[in-house]
Every structure is written in structure tokens, then in C-alpha cells.
Amino acid sequence: MIELYLFLVFMIIAAFVATEIKDLLAAVISLGAVGFSVAIMFILVQAPDLAIVQIVVEVVTIVIFVAVIFRTTHVDETIGKKLTSSHVLSIVLYAFFALIFFIAMVRALQELPAFGNATMKVASEYIRLGLPQTGGANLVADVILDFRALDTLGEATVLFTSVIGVIALMRSVGRKK
């Protein structure tokens, strides 16, 4: 699985470029590079459902980002300014936290099964009962719409809330008193 590691290295480089570059449009293009790499990695780990959704969502994300940047400005003025004390403090705090978090994640991920040998206690039941009990052949659709449909209802509510938030924030004229 060498290609997975190559994609991950590419994604880390592109993510670093996106955070440090001066042109915001280039930063958004780097974000798109990371997103499409994620889509290709979903195909490589046998998740075609996720790959389809990720590709289309990435396109719409970039369209929205570019629309916002076209309406405002595409130069990041904060790059290249001299560092203030609060900025230095935030970098030091970040480095401290990142070190602790990384060590904790190394400890935690050692408890997980190694890459490529997932334990499937619950999933084996879903796979065994999926076709007989629901009749659907796509097991991911069975899980999200039959076994765990209440979870999907909650996610749909979150999406509805965010749509209402965007429409309310972007309303052209406020309501008359």
C-alpha cells in the first residue's frame, strides 16, 4: 500500500502550503488538492460511497470559497507582518499542545488494531443480517437508513439548521420593526 503513504505526504505538503501562502485563491486551490486526494484515498480503501460524495462536495466547497473570495479580496495581508507578542505566545502554546496531543495519540493508536486488520464485532452482525432483514444490497445504505436511521435524522437536522443560518445571515434587508 505504498500509494497511500505517497498521497498522505502530498496532502501534508499541500496543507502546509495552504496555510502559509499569501494569495488566498492559491490557498483554496491547495485545499481542493487535499480534498481530491482524500477522495482518491477513499477509493483505495474500498469506500466508493464516500469517494462519490467527497468529490462532489469538494467541487461545491471550492465554488463557495471562490465566490466569497471574489466578493472580497484575495490577498492575505497578515503574511509578512512582523510578529507581535500575542502571536508568538499563540505559536508557543500551540507547539506545547501539539507535542502533548501527539504523544497522547501515539499511546491511544497503539491500542487500536494494526492497519488492515479491523475487528468487526458489530459490523459482522450488520453484514450477516443486512440483506435478509432490510433487502438492500448496499450495506452502507442499510446502516444509515435502516439500522441507524435515527442518527441520519439528527444529521439532517444539523444540515437544516446550517441552511437556515446561512439564509438568515445573508438576508438582504432586515425585517421592519
Binding site: Q46, L50, F65, A123, V140, I144, E155
Partner: peptide
């Protein structure tokens, strides 16, 4: 098969991520 449960959990999270990103961008605008 590979494990379908993480895929089912992530599938909804991707679309939610787009919604929250759009909400943040509208506040930024």
C-alpha cells in the same frame, strides 16, 4: 467486506462539513 460502520458514519459527516463551512463563510463575509 471492509467495515461498513465507519463509512456510514463518515458519509453523513462529509455533507454536514459542507454545511458548517458555508455557515462559517457567511459569518466571515
Amino acid at each position: 467486506f471492509v467495515d461498513p460502520i465507519p463509512q456510514a458514519l463518515v458519509l453523513t459527516a462529509i455533507v454536514i462539513a459542507l454545511g458548517t463551512t458555508a455557515l462559517m463563510l457567511s459569518v466571515v463575509l
